[in-house]
Design a protein around this nucleic acid. Sequence first.
DNA 1: GGCGAATTGACAACATATTGACAACCTCGG
DNA 2: CCGAGGTTGTCAATATGTTGTCAATTCGCC
Lengths: 147, 147
Amino acid sequence: MSDAQKGPVFTEIVLEVFKLGGFLVSEGDRMGSEYGITSARWKILGALSLAGEPQTVPQIAGSMGLTRQAVQRLVDAMQKDNLLLFQDNPGHKRAKLISLSDLGKTVYSKLYEKQSGWAKTCSAGITQAELETTLSVLERISGAIER
Amino acid sequence: MSDAQKGPVFTEIVLEVFKLGGFLVSEGDRMGSEYGITSARWKILGALSLAGEPQTVPQIAGSMGLTRQAVQRLVDAMQKDNLLLFQDNPGHKRAKLISLSDLGKTVYSKLYEKQSGWAKTCSAGITQAELETTLSVLERISGAIER
DNA sequence: GGCGAATTGACAACATATTGACAACCTCGG
DNA sequence: CCGAGGTTGTCAATATGTTGTCAATTCGCC
């Protein structure tokens, strides 16, 4: 199999990632609208939930592939909406630790249930193996770029 | 294989698509900066090149998964920068036909060469079959959302 | 031919994300 | 202990994309 054939497929994947990203943002906004949540805010809730412990803004940014400035703005707005809690960081005067408030936890778990049903619908007709290959390939491409 | 296991993998794919999308935009901006081109403008050049014939704004938007308003803004700016040509549409007084100018064609072909080498590096260690599976899965997910 | 529905361009308001710059803070080596 | 360099929060400018609205145009059906 010649490497020359991989270029065009790779280009198509890039275009499809852009397209699908747009669709997913729209879909996430739609699902979250019931709780006053946008896709971007959902990402923050998810990052905090996955981490399992309070995180700083740069930590969240790193795990999500965003800049710290982008995360900071979201986090500030979400604290005002009582979705997040800021705690003083004993080891660092400026870098506050951020965690989910009770409201944030409640909203996230309700979104998680809603998203599970949607995920099942979207992945109908796609095998587990295909999904795992896709995830692996996307991760390897991300890793190769590694900005 | 239970469907219940597909949900978590699907969620990870969604997060990875967001992350990779951000990386690809950055990388595209970086590669295009030499020619004064951003990722968004590259997408427009690519859509016109792939179509092979002049397109209207809504046609470009449909093929790229963007809204016509987003495409309109880019196209207007790119015409001012002499990357695109507007032609009167014989069949429609308002919807002008848009095509690549000579400058647009030159820039796109240079970007294509640059991107080819980059694609080869990024896809090192990934088989053709894996890439094709990934593209197929992403397309099926896009199709399932089909906003 | 004509009328209602859909398409299209234009404009506005907003959310998201980037880069750049600066000052405050922290860490670590000398 | 202290200063250089990296980290963090903040602010600003810009780019990209969304939704919503309006008027002009086109299309399809009668």
